[in-house]
Design a protein around this nucleic acid. Structure first.
Lengths: 202, 202
DNA sequence: ATACAAATAGCACGACCGGTCGTTAAATGT
DNA sequence: ACATTTAACGACCGGTCGTGCTATTTGTAT
């Protein structure tokens, strides 16, 4: 029946979860089958049987990370009602996701895109697409806030989304380099100021 | 005498130059001795003899990249007289350095820090230190502009430097993902607007 | 021209890589 | 109870990695 593959599905999930967390810190390519299998206490061949190739494992890892990102960032961010609150909510959800170290190495996709940006192939395409979707979500929230009259219509939504995303990614990068939470303070302050500057007068 | 090592010094320079360009695109760890030697038409052991270990090769590569960065970004940026012009000059020099693909994979240090941020060791330390020096240079230029009365004294120089750096790095990241020069347009626009907003009235 | 040291090449090593194989043990269907 | 499918295993393959050790070439001073 449908419960037949339960056992295999569970180990597969465990593999992908661990692979995503590991890859965020050490890179997708650095996660070898041997290392992964050793960490999980299973054999390399047993692990490999779940995926036809290393590339398919990487693809599945990206999908797993996307699922986590949706759950941890997009869902809580979009739970805010449309408007500046939703824009701020998305930003704060991202910062919290980085700060709580949902992935030990910071944002999974920033690490992955840095690793694969100059390496064409399906893995790169998948990562880039996910990243674009995030940027588009941010831009859409800004446009919603404009039609709601909470952000002045003169601002270029895509430009503002790009700027906010730069600050978010900058916080992610700084947080893995600098100690303490100074990076998040800086990002929150910049984002607050930036949103206030474009807020429509009531 | 002192010219005896000329031959060796030249090949060493060729190795490091190629290694830095390669590493910016594919990562420091992905640059294998075999690949490097093959590209340069020399033997692996002949190449290896110039450095005692792979780590020393990586360290030397970082130093080489730092030298290039100084020449291509810091020097032209700091040639502007102190003030907002110097701040803008540093930003523009960085953008130009990325845009002209001095390193094929974009800014060498952004690629390197993303790869080594979660991998303690001398390579990481070196990269982080270089990056910090750049951020400090930017902050110093801002403070100079404040004492020159060209930027209002209320702004937090470190905060502004962090923001500008985020935009510069964002342009670097976007440029390897998105086609065309939209990333640089966005960055230049954001930086111009940001500097105008903090400019002291004449 | 010869001697000598620096620069490079040749070669082999152990470790690890992704990947394939046949086999075993457990779960499932009848 | 038995037959079949699935999950996991251990051994192994060819290849590449970084790294030593030794030979050979090459440039220069005498």
């Amino acid at each position: 029946m449908d419960r037949r593959r339960l056992r295999g599905e569970r180990t597969r999930q465990a593999i992908l979860s661990h692979a995503a967390r590991l890859a965020s810190a050490e890179g997708l390519e650095a996660v070898s089958l041997q290392r992964l299998a050793g960490d999980l206490g299973i054999s390399k061949s047993g692990l490999f049987a779940h995926f036809g190739s290393k590339e398919e494992l990487q693809l599945a890892t990206v999908e797993e990370a996307a699922w986590v990102f949706t759950l941890e960032v997009l869902k809580p961010g979009l739970s805010e009602p449309a408007g500046v609150g939703r824009v701020a909510g998305l930003c704060e959800a991202f910062l919290s996701y980085v700060e709580r170290r949902v992935f030990p190495g910071g944002c999974f996709f920033e690490a992955a895109v840095a690793e694969f940006d100059s390496r064409p192939g399906p893995v790169r395409d998948s990562v880039v697409e996910k990243r674009r979707y995030w940027a588009a979500s941010l831009a859409r929230a800004i446009r919603e806030a404009q039609t709601a009259g909470q952000i002045v219509p003169e601002v270029d939504a895509d430009q503002l989304a790009w700027e906010l995303n730069c600050l978010l990614i900058g916080a992610n990068n700084s947080s893995v380099t600098d100690p303490g939470d100074v990076a998040f303070q800086r990002a929150r302050r910049s984002i607050r100021d930036r949103l206030q500057a474009v807020a429509a007068k009531p």
